[in-house]
């Protein structure tokens, strides 16, 4: 089961986001510099947020900021790329606005979920096609090719909503 999926519908406080990022981050490919990945804390997330690496919170409950799935993916993607030797500025320039679906596919693959482990791909090589999986209803899985459907997450969400409505 893809552990990312547990977070798709959830709202996370900052500590919860940090914890989730730390747990999932442990499954990212080993970095050349192990120390880079070791640190995901609240300061880091706030810093990412002040630079736009992580979107602004979904909403606030009183003074508590609530984050969502996209934020988790952004933290993991940033950490993973940093671990691979990319500068934060490169990540900032290229990941700005990347749709959640694409981000999810890439992060899932980095976690060893949607694609088989493979030796690191050289930066210049075209990305192998990655498929994304969603559990749209208990026991019902949907596999989407993001190259055909640019926002698989939205598609899955729509389908899931439809199923929930049409189920008596």
């Amino acid at each position: 089961m893809n552990p990312l999926h547990a977070y798709r519908p959830r709202e996370l406080s900052l500590p919860a986001l940090v914890q989730a990022a730390a747990e999932l981050g442990a499954r990212l490919p080993a970095s050349a510099d192990e120390r880079v990945r070791a640190e995901v804390d609240e300061r880091t997330v706030r810093y990412y947020q002040s630079t736009g690496l992580v979107d602004r919170p979904l909403r606030y409950e009183g003074r508590t900021a609530l984050y969502g799935y996209r934020h988790l993916l952004q933290v993991l993607a940033t950490k993973a790329l940093q671990g691979a030797g990319y500068k934060l500025s490169q990540v900032q320039a290229s990941l700005a606005g990347v749709p959640t679906g694409e981000l999810e596919a890439a992060v899932a693959r980095a976690l060893g979920e949607a694609a088989a482990p493979a030796p690191p791909v050289p930066a210049a090589a075209p990305a192998p096609r990655a498929l994304v999986q969603f559990e749209v209803s208990p026991g019902l899985w949907l596999t989407v090719d993001p190259a055909v459907h640019p926002d698989p997450a939205a598609l899955a969400a729509a389908l899931s909503t439809h199923l929930t409505r049409s189920t008596p």
Partner: peptide, 23 residues
């Protein structure tokens, strides 16, 4: 979380390498 198998960064690297800037 299942332990052991780890993924690869190909997908993420493709996102970065694919564009010079998305700003």
């Amino acid at each position: 979380l299942a332990t052991g198998s780890r993924g690869d960064l190909g997908g993420l690297i493709a996102l970065v390498a694919g564009r010079e800037t998305a700003l």
